[in-house]
Computed example of a mutant assay.
Amino acid sequence: MNKIQFSVVIPLYNKIDSVTKTLESISAQRYAAAEIIVVDDGSSDGSAEKVRELNMPNLRIVEQTNQGVSAARNLGVSLASFPYIAFLDADDQWSPFFLAEMHNLILRFPEQSFFASHYQKVVKQDIYIDPKLAIKNVSPTGCILENYFAVASNGDLPFMVSSCVITSYLFDQLGGFPIGESMGEDQELFCRVALQSQIVFSPLVLLLYHTDAENRACDRHIPQRILPFAARLLEKTLTPSIDTELKRDILRYCGAHVCHLVRLNIRAGDFIVAKRLLKMDVCKLKPMHKLVFYLWTELCICHSLINGLFKWIRRSFNINSKS
């Protein structure tokens, strides 16, 4: 086999505070990246200039008007010179051994086209959280992930877009990332891979996934309905040819997605939206989640009403006292 070479694709949009650490994590790789393609998606905070100042070898920066993360990644892949594409968001960092492990997985599973590793969440500076994975007894040298939908519906996602490698051939076959979808575009790709190919998974923690970074899409806008990737999956379950067990796992996966949206909307104080989402049929497949979120929503509504009542009483008392 010829030497395995990786093209790293980084979409960049207003990440001036984090992109340097991201690129430094690539420079620190024990197995060097063959090329780094940064696609600046119309940044206005000086991010592109920051990248240029680093003067990194094998890095080129391409600029486009703001079209979204999917268009930026797709453009990066189209410009890649090598067949193995590694994605890294501009606010995440790899372990120094990420590409080395991807190299080892490719050697162990040369017939496969999608490779991924475990990760840690960084919620605040120096505060790390291990995702809850529904995978047990995984060989430290990697394995074929038997059922992505079953794993992802019973815990956190087993990997992130920044901890995966895909061949350019499979990427083109799948049609790339969906244009115009700023959220869930990564899960759309994962689902397409799971339905068409196999996923090679390493349990090694090789990515720091930041939930504390600036300018995150999920912080700017909380969805009030299921995302397009889940809607498309629900449509797919109506296909008569789909396997019964796979259909069940996909529905549970969509149910987990809806419950996640419920949680986000409860925390944002959008209780009406949360209750509407809980009425979706797929939530019945996550009964404990549905019960907990229903009780949480009702408790929050009661708390809000009581607070409103006390405020009204205080205002009335103050008015009467003055008169």
Rank of each mutant, 00 (worst) to 15 (best):
S197H: 05
D249T: 01
P110A: 00
C143K: 00
L105S: 07
R248L: 12
I16K: 15
D41E: 09
Y128V: 13
L234K: 01
L261N: 02
V151T: 15
G269E: 14
S44T: 15
V258N: 04
I85D: 12
D186V: 07
R73Q: 07
G184M: 08
L174K: 08
L170Q: 11
W312E: 10
G76V: 05
I179V: 14
D219R: 14
H260F: 13
C283F: 03
N307S: 09
D156S: 15
Y209L: 06
N66V: 02
L54K: 12
L170W: 11
N137A: 11
A256V: 02
I106R: 10
I61W: 03
G175P: 06
F293Q: 12
A100E: 12
Q125V: 02
L23K: 12
N14I: 00
G46C: 08
L206A: 08
G46S: 14
H103L: 13
I301Y: 04
Q112P: 02
V38M: 05
D249K: 04
N104E: 15
E235M: 12
S43I: 00
G155C: 14
A33F: 06
L170R: 13
K279A: 10
D243E: 14
L12C: 12
G308S: 12
V205L: 04
G175T: 11
R314T: 11
Q29Y: 10
Q125F: 05
A90W: 01
I61V: 14
M102R: 13
I144E: 14
N147L: 05
E245R: 15
H257G: 03
L157T: 00
Q29M: 13
L88P: 03
C218G: 00
K275A: 13
K50S: 04
D212E: 12
K21G: 02
D219W: 07
S316W: 12
L54Y: 12
I135G: 00
D172K: 13
Q125E: 15
R30S: 07
A256N: 15
L295S: 08
Q29A: 10
S321I: 03
I135D: 01
K275N: 03
L234N: 05
F6D: 04
S95H: 15
C259G: 13
F190G: 07
E245F: 11
D126T: 04
D41S: 05
V292Q: 14
T244Q: 15
F109L: 13
Q5A: 04
